[in-house]
Structures are given as structure tokens and as C-alpha cells.
């Protein structure tokens, strides 16, 4: 299985590295977003520092996402085609796991666009779209884990665990700080923060950590794609 990860073109490596970095950056962005919403006040920088970092990291996330997507599409092995980058679940290669990534990208693009226009949209419409980022993060995580090329590498597993712990901790911190009111929203956040780690753990145990997952996931799709 490790041998599989070591085969392939430089584009394939670049894509995996770009994707992993994008996930780490997205995690940091989400954590900072949660922190600023919870009025975190770091002693050394002002609170505006969190906001600026949130913005800068989100843009950097998109840069690495572009690298991730472009290299993946250009890589001759998977023969993805450009439509895959925006139309979720249309790929011939691992349609489900790739589709999650495409959906996450679409959501993040919507967030980017509305953020650029937020002064015109008004706070309510902007915020409504901005919350989609919370959906994009687990999609991206499952996309990474499920696509599975590197999932069984211990380092990669630690990285996923770290990302998960950071976001879950941020959500619980914010819930602990939150005042009364908005019970439905808080309940939803608590449920999601509990469900995502449980589902991910179960999924890992059932799928990607079993021998041959990457091959079977790829192989299952190969005949459909009519590839090699």
C-alpha cells in the first residue's frame, strides 16, 4: 500500500501535499473564526489580529486548494477533467470521496464571493452564507480521509486527529462561553462536534484502516472510468 503511494507522477505528489496543507490551513481558519465569534481576546495582539489572520489564512487555504485541484486534474493517472473541480459527484474516479472535496470547494468559493461583497449584501445574507464554511470543513476532512491515498500513514493520521481535536475543542470552548439564547444553534453545534469525531473514527476503522482500502476504492472505480 505504501508502494502505491510512492508510485505516480510529481503532479500527484503535489496534489496530495496541496490538499493536506489546505486542510490544515482550513482548520486553522475555522478555529480562528470560531475564536473571534466567541470574542477571544489575545493579550499581545488586539482582537482585530484574529480577524486579520482568519482572513489571510482563508486566502492561503484557497491558494493551496487551487494547487491541489489543478495538479489533480492535470495528473494523467486519474483523468479527472475540469468539470470535476466544480461539479460534485460527477467524477469517474472515486466519485463519492472526490465529490465531497468538490462540494467543500464550492461552499468555500461561495463564502469567498459573499465575503468580497459583504458590505453590499448586508450582514444577514453574508453571515448566512458564511456559516457554510462550517459544513465545508467536515466535507474536506472526509474527502481527505476517504480518498485514502495517504490515510494509513501514521503522520497523516496524527494530522487528521490534530485538525479534528482543534476544531472540536474550539466549538466546545465557544459553547462554554456562550450565554443563554439560541438554544437550537447551540444544540446543533454540540451535536455536530460530537458526531463528527465518532463517525470519523467508525469510518476509519471500517474502511481506510483496513488493508487494501486505497486499492479497492480506486479499483472499484477504475472499470467504470474505463481506465487502466
Amino acid at each position: 500500500m505504501t508502494t502505491l503511494a510512492l508510485t505516480g507522477s510529481p503532479l500527484w505528489y503535489a496534489s496530495r501535499a496541496g490538499g493536506t496543507l489546505a486542510l490544515v490551513l482550513l482548520t486553522a481558519t475555522v478555529v480562528l473564526g470560531i475564536a473571534s465569534g466567541g470574542r477571544a481576546a489575545p493579550r499581545r495582539t488586539g482582537r482585530f489580529g484574529i480577524g486579520l489572520l482568519h482572513r489571510d489564512l482563508s486566502l492561503l487555504t484557497l491558494v493551496f486548494l487551487v494547487v491541489h485541484v489543478v495538479t489533480a486534474v492535470l495528473d494523467p493517472f486519474a483523468r479527472l477533467g475540469w468539470a470535476v473541480s466544480v461539479v460534485p459527484f460527477g467524477a469517474s474516479y472515486r466519485p463519492l470521496w472526490l465529490g465531497l472535496g468538490t462540494a467543500a470547494l464550492d461552499l468555500l468559493l461561495a463564502v469567498l464571493l459573499t465575503s468580497a461583497l459583504r458590505l453590499r449584501l448586508g450582514v444577514r445574507r453574508w453571515k448566512a452564507v458564511h456559516r457554510l464554511a462550517y459544513a465545508a470543513w467536515p466535507l474536506a476532512l472526509f474527502h481527505g480521509v476517504g480518498s485514502g491515498t495517504d490515510t494509513r500513514l501514521p503522520l497523516q493520521l496524527w494530522l487528521y486527529a490534530g485538525c479534528l481535536a482543534a476544531v472540536v475543542a474550539a466549538v466546545w470552548w465557544r459553547l462554554a462561553k456562550a450565554g443563554p439564547g439560541r438554544v437550537a444553534a447551540r444544540l446543533l453545534a454540540a451535536t455536530a462536534a460530537t458526531a463528527v469525531p465518532v463517525v470519523l473514527g467508525a469510518f476509519l476503522a471500517a474502511g481506510p484502516l483496513q488493508p487494501g482500502w486505497a486499492q479497492s476504492a480506486a479499483a472499484a472505480a477504475l472499470p467504470l472510468g474505463g481506465g487502466r
Binding site: 473571534s36 465569534g37 482585530f48 480577524g51 486579520l52 459583504r118 458590505l119 448586508g122 450582514v123 453574508w126
Partner: peptide
């Protein structure tokens, strides 16, 4: 301009 951009409520 920076202060306007930083307001989380666009207020």
C-alpha cells in the same frame, strides 16, 4: 477602511 473591514457585524 481597515476598521470598516474588521467589523464582524458590518456595522
Amino acid at each position: 477602511r481597515r476598521a470598516v473591514a474588521a467589523c464582524p457585524r458590518l456595522a
